[in-house]
Amino acid sequence: MGDYNLDKMLAELQNLMGDKLELSEDAFFNWIHISPDQLLVLMDKLKNEYGFNYLANLTAVDYGEYFEIVYHLYSIPANNKTGVKTRVSRNQAQVDSVCLIWPTADWQEREVYDLMGIDFKGHPNLVRVLLPDDFTGHPLRKDFEMER
């Protein structure tokens, strides 16, 4: 099934959100680019209306001026997949937490916060998860200075 539904869904979303949302496609994923302020609205729709109940992966990439936060979504019974990307600027690295939509985002967001230094608004317990609490800096940022 998959593809037809997915296209329909993307078209619907495009209609709904207009220019807040951009679509792109690469060999492996259909990407939905969304502005950070609309993220929660989109995610809520994706989960509750389109059945993407499984947030497989949540991570972020440092592109210099901006960070890109990447969500890989799957729907388990229907076996669909889609990706969501949102960009936040380096100076104001803050995005809404999707923790309430998918509880699995809890630790994944903590990890992104820990290693990349992105602040997730509304996260219940945003503390470092892998690094010690007294660590300074965020090692996966490209400007992180390594000691050696």
């Binding site: 497989a56 992966n57 630790w107 990890e111 996966l140």
Partner: peptide, 15 residues
């Protein structure tokens, strides 16, 4: 690689 992220099952299962 510019960026490599590992989605580790143990990490998420432990949640």
């Amino acid at each position: 690689p510019y960026r490599l992220h590992v989605r580790a099952p143990s990490f998420i299962n432990l949640m």
